[in-house]
Design a protein around this nucleic acid. Structure first.
Lengths: 131, 131
DNA sequence: CTGTATCCATTTGGATACTG
DNA sequence: CAGTATCCAAATGGATACAG
């Protein structure tokens, strides 16, 4: 029986559907930021690192490899010394990145509403929390 | 100096901007699924648990509390025995959920392209990997 | 039924050193 | 410069038991 007929993303939970996996790559902590950053223009590895801020080499490498494997990011390694590698979005990646950007822009737009909600929540908690 | 003039989401990396935090809540593993599920209709705790599939009580509780605090989800606890708690989207939450749904639908649409890309990537790896 | 608390396994992430 | 490898600390996530 279908647990969720309206939503193919929600599986009955036997084995993780590949569908969810892609979504997790795209929405992953660093995946989101990489996609948005590349939407602007191609970046070199170190440019990405600087632009994103607090990401370790390890995590950035891992994220880029995952996105490359999924066909969202194109990796162009020039055979020069010192090495130069440029990362850019593929057509598929651009589509994904635009969706992600939509989400990020929404977040920016509604940030203040979220802040307010949080303060209300915390205040309410503090109230009912005390005797 | 601004590290990224075009993108407010990308900070220079001093201290995590609240902006990024909201985005992480919304794009979190279970946050995504909860928002999409609630877009359909309000759900009780156990309904959500069943619908989403493989989520522990702990993670679902944690996710719901975070989303409630951010003002995206409304929690309605009825004072009955046995307890009954309904979760639904707020106006703010519905906006977020629609963005997330966009992303999820894109994923579903383009899944086969991603699959192909992966196979190509793996095949290429296997090739260059061997001597 | 809807959680909370606890323990434990897995994952993530960072620092560092090193290679091509 | 662009990674890889390794080690270790911290966060995440699940299973279980229990409470209101």
């Amino acid at each position: 029986m279908a647990v969720s007929a309206v939503n193919p993303l929600i599986s009955s939970g036997e084995t993780m559907c590949p569908h969810r996996l892609v979504l997790e790559h795209v929405t992953s902590r660093w995946g989101v930021l990489v996609l948005i950053q590349l939407l602007d223009r191609p970046h070199r590895f170190s440019e990405l690192r600087r632009a994103i801020g607090r990401v370790s080499e390890k995590m950035l490498t891992q994220t880029l490899q995952t996105l490359e494997r999924d066909g969202l990011v194109h990796r162009d390694a020039k055979p020069v010394i010192p090495p130069r590698v440029d990362y850019s979005l593929t057509g598929l990646g651009r589509e994904a990145a635009e969706q992600v950007r939509g989400l990020a822009e929404w977040t920016a737009r509604r940030m203040s509403a979220v802040q307010e909600a949080r303060e209300g929540y915390d205040a309410r908690k503090a109230d009912t929390g005390q005797r």
